[in-house]
Design a protein around this nucleic acid. Structure first.
Lengths: 212, 212
DNA sequence: ATACTAATGCGATTCGCATCGCGTTAGCGG
DNA sequence: CCGCTAACGCGATGCGAATCGCATTAGTAT
């Protein structure tokens, strides 16, 4: 979609792309998301400026393509045997990915850069759609085990678990720590058990009754 | 903080600020968050370009100050008598604020513009801190009514209710509709009832037990 | 009222990113 | 092995944002 159809994928174009995207990531790591410049990427990658503008259109396209490449690489969905631990593993992974010094500030800067343009946000949408789709499996398995109400929307459970983390990280700017990540997983779990994510079911749709 | 200390608030500076911030909002409404330009704001507001650079430093400062002004204006926290309806009112208000044609795309563009710079995000943090602090009152009242476990962290309940909306709107780019907003409120409610937001309490911290 | 000075108005200049036309290289088909 | 052309390299140019020094206006104090 954001990918220009390459008619000669034979070696060079692929090499150029890899070099450029790696350089983009490196720049994003070093100078941050607002210091990202086409010229800097050109210098670092050894690819000429004009080529970058031709193939990617500008900084936005570079960031979007970085995300596309990330979305392509598959991802290991946790499978611990219980929904609670699966959700905790997911939120912990998100937490670690954005706070561990190992990864550095790179993932954060990639997202921040993507948020700056419609093109980047479109790539973000695709990225999260892929992730949510895969992660929903933890709910599917939980339903199969009888842990969770039938018909629970798996993607929605995952969304609810992850949303507070991204909300803190990218919207409110509040600090994100491990307890907060755990609480988010617990909240999604409690809501899933209560049947909040079962569509159409009148269920506990109403009533001020005690759910505890 | 982002506010240059004005030593002569007597009329003119205030008028200039109002005109500039209004013009910024108008530009944000019209050309969108990435078309926002200091020059355009200068022309529209009738204030000279150099003044804008001097007092606000650039586009980032303008957006930040718009948010500061918004954060200043107080806000009516719902008080329906039940936590469920209060939370629903809050999420519905967020939903409506970003999707109603009445408000237009302005609020969305303000947030998007603020996300683009550290300065803007700092203003966002302050904005949400104020909002969350006020909104936490709905939980305080609910605890007083005995509806919700003692010691529940009100701000965290509100965060959990709002997070999925902002997550969809600004991170994943998924569509936001009324059912989704209601589900977010229900999820936060279920989690609050389950005692997820009570710190320190061992409570239901463990166990695969039934919470329904 | 009248100095005083903070705040703004004004235009020129600088600076850096984006874009263009043309020459060169390298992957592809025969 | 040899043409063919897509893809890239290269430098020049255009364009708009950001910044500067100085002139002018308008609050403020006395």
């Amino acid at each position: 979609m954001s990918e220009t159809p390459i008619k000669r994928p034979g070696g060079r174009s692929a090499r150029v792309r890899a070099a450029v995207l790696d350089a983009t990531l490196a720049e994003l790591t070093g100078r941050g998301y607002d210091g990202l410049t086409v010229e800097a990427v050109a210098v670092r990658s050894g690819v000429h400026k004009a080529t970058l503008y031709r193939r990617w259109g500008g900084v936005d396209g570079l960031v979007a393509d970085v995300l596309s490449r990330s979305a392509g690489q598959p991802w290991q969905v946790p499978d611990t045997g219980s929904l609670r631990d699966d959700l905790r593993a997911i939120t912990h992974e998100v937490y670690a990915g954005f706070t561990d010094p190992g990864h550095g500030v790179t993932p954060r800067n990639v997202i921040l850069a993507a948020l700056r343009s419609p093109q980047g946000r479109q790539a973000l949408t695709a990225f999260f759609e892929a992730r949510h789709g895969q992660a929903a499996a933890v709910v599917t398995r939980s339903v199969a085990r009888g842990e969770t109400p039938d018909g629970t929307d798996g993607a929605d459970v995952v969304r609810t678990a992850c949303a507070p983390l991204y909300y803190r990280l990218f919207v409110t700017g509040e600090p994100l720590d491990e307890p907060a990540a755990h609480r988010a997983a617990e909240a999604a779990l409690a809501a899933a058990r209560a049947g909040v994510f079962v569509p159409r079911r009148p269920g506990r749709e109403d009533g001020s009754g005690d759910a505890r």
